[in-house]
Computed example of a mutant assay.
Amino acid sequence: MSDPFIGEIKMFAGNFAPRGYSLCNGQLTAISQNTALFSLLGTTYGGDGVTTFALPNFQGRSPIHWGTGVGLQPVELGEFAGVESVSVLTSNMPAHNHTIFASTGEGTSNVPLANGYLAAAVDKDLNPINMYTAAPANQVPLNSTVSGSSIPLQTRSPYLSVSFIIALMGEYPSRS
């Protein structure tokens, strides 16, 4: 196999970085020990630029090419965004209501009616109770209760986890 370019990133099915590579986990790296790689990455992914620089961090992230696609916002090299899950709250939910109407009039049927309303029950002798009506005498909204438990929803597409590794040694890439 030919030598990789310094800074070349590959997907790797193992849970370690082979010799000459490092995992892309965002770790800080000493500039003095990796001057060639620092000359390519700089502080794009972090570090102070004096003694350290950071490797890209692919943990929980999907790669995306930098630049601007048709109809898309520009993405800078090294930029990261997005979240793995989100909580749907009343404050970020579209405005809507769940109004349910019932009738204050007496029921005329003991089975639900198409386009019918819940009505007042009228039988006190354990006979089938008429509690539905086709036309309400007077509509009243029923009280609603809050439901849900504020558990965050996953926002990830289906995925398969692999390691991303970056070449620390190899051929220095030319700009031609």
Rank of each mutant, 00 (worst) to 15 (best):
F101R: 08
F101N: 11
F101C: 02
A102L: 09
A102D: 06
A102Q: 08
A102T: 14
S103D: 10
T104G: 01
T104F: 02
T104H: 10
T104N: 06
G105P: 12
G105D: 04
G105Y: 15
G105H: 13
E106G: 14
E106M: 05
G107F: 06
G107Y: 11
T108D: 13
T108S: 15
T108N: 05
S109P: 02
S109K: 14
N110H: 08
N110F: 10
V111H: 05
V111I: 10
P112H: 06
P112C: 11
L113N: 03
L113V: 12
L113Y: 05
L113R: 04
L113M: 13
L113K: 07
A114E: 09
A114M: 05
A114W: 00
A114G: 07
N115G: 11
N115H: 08
N115P: 08
N115I: 06
N115C: 04
N115V: 12
N115K: 15
N115M: 11
N115W: 07
G116S: 11
Y117P: 10
L118K: 14
L118H: 10
A119M: 13
A119P: 05
A120W: 02
A120L: 11
A120P: 01
A121G: 13
A121I: 02
A121P: 15
A121M: 08
V122C: 04
V122H: 04
V122Y: 03
D123L: 02
D123K: 01
K124C: 04
K124N: 11
D125G: 03
D125V: 01
L126K: 12
L126V: 00
L126T: 07
L126W: 02
N127H: 01
N127T: 04
N127Y: 00
N127V: 02
P128Q: 09
P128H: 03
P128F: 10
I129M: 03
I129D: 11
N130W: 00
N130L: 00
N130M: 02
